[in-house]
Simulated scan of single mutants.
Amino acid sequence: MNFSLHDCDLSLFEHDWNKVGSFLHTHGLDGVELFIDHTPLPDFPCGVVKGVHLPYWMGKHRAWVDESAFHEDMDENERFFLFGGRDRQDMITNFINALENAASINAEYGVFHVAYVEPHHVFTRNFEVSDIEVMDSTAEFLNSSVALLSGREPPVKLFFENLWWPGLNLLDTAATMHFVDSLEFENWAFTLDTGHLMNAIMNCTDERHAIDSVLEVLERYPEDIIGRMEGMHFHCSLSGDYQMQVAKSGVPAGYHELPFHERLVAVMEHISKIDQHMPFTDERCKEIVDFVKPRFLTHEFETNSLPELDRKLRTQIQALCRERE
């Protein structure tokens, strides 16, 4: 399951990693996919960590292609949140430090988003860039970073995750293949995020239809690409109606006058309504897993309490294990 070192997650288990381990065992899970960044890691029993989720800097594409973005007048917290550093080299250094953190706890993979979105874009979907442009800048950033590492390969396998923003959204097979061909290293694979793909499709409002839509997209890919989908973030998102409604409404009134923290809260509340992270309830969800056959399946939910997390895990695991009638 997904997990972090933030208090919102640790407090569910009273900051006791033994309780985390017992909870995993109860649900038949092998470990956690832990969110980490470039900062030094605290002490914790790393054996429970199977993989990590690397940080996502939403505006990295813009800063990478136009370094003047680093010098815009903005709050320092906003600058780092968007760009991941003070300049290109700082961005690369922070990324490499995150990779080294992942290697230090023997993570088997590190999830990385190949996507670009400025905070106000999430309301309008007027992105002003193409998938290919984002993939090209991301490939250049990755190639530049990895070239500085021992053996010119990342120390943990990079798992590229699809989002519904410009970049790797999996809707265009040719664009995906273009990204793959742009990489200058071999230690990579994909993480298929089922909910994110539903968000990208945009018309998913019913679980059975959403499952069919995901399978339809996957069937467009050759076997070698499906074989590279070694990870899976497994959850359901049926926000098609909401997405269409909000895209017509545009940016909320007064949004641009708010301080960064308040703008960020508004953005995250909106994103949570798009990216619902609900458990699958229909046993046909197993068709997605059977089609991809991932090495690692992460039950990825957002929860506010341990009973809620317990319920969502039980619901989805039961759907996966239930025999079809």
Rank of each mutant, 00 (worst) to 15 (best):
D241W: 07
M278E: 14
F44A: 08
L163M: 14
A210S: 13
E118R: 12
D73A: 10
L163I: 09
H178N: 11
E287T: 08
L10P: 05
H71M: 10
T205G: 10
I225Q: 11
L320F: 08
K157A: 14
D30A: 05
I288G: 02
E14R: 14
A147E: 07
G250Y: 03
F296H: 10
E153S: 06
P42S: 12
S137W: 00
F234L: 09
E283F: 07
Y116Q: 07
C285Y: 00
T138W: 03
H261E: 15
L238Y: 05
A147K: 08
D7R: 14
P154H: 03
G250H: 03
A63K: 00
F234I: 07
V48P: 02
L218Y: 12
R263G: 03
E186C: 15
T298Y: 08
R322S: 09
E153P: 02
A107V: 09
E128P: 08
E140W: 08
E67M: 09
S130Y: 10
P279Q: 05
W164T: 04
L320E: 06
S145Y: 01
F141M: 05
F301W: 04
N97K: 15
G110K: 04
K50G: 04
E78T: 03
H261V: 15
G231Y: 02
S182W: 09
K19H: 10
S237P: 04
A102I: 09
K248W: 03
D75F: 08
L309A: 07
R62K: 15
H277T: 07
E186Y: 14
M58F: 14
P259M: 08
P222E: 13
Q318A: 13
F160H: 06
Q245S: 11
M91W: 04
E300W: 02
L149I: 05
S130Q: 12
D87V: 01
V214E: 09
E140P: 01
E308L: 11
F80D: 02
I271A: 02
L10M: 12
A210N: 08
T205L: 06
R311C: 12
L29Q: 03
F190W: 08
V251K: 01
D290E: 09
L149R: 00
G85N: 03
V267K: 01
N143E: 07
N18S: 15
L313F: 00
E216R: 15
S239K: 00
S137L: 06
P222R: 13
L264V: 11
W165Q: 10
M1C: 14
S104Q: 08
S272Q: 12
I317D: 00
A98P: 06
F234V: 08
V20Y: 00
L99E: 03
S22H: 13
I317R: 02
I274D: 00
R314T: 10
A210W: 01
I36W: 01
N18H: 14
K293C: 05
F3H: 07
G84L: 01
L148S: 07
G28R: 02
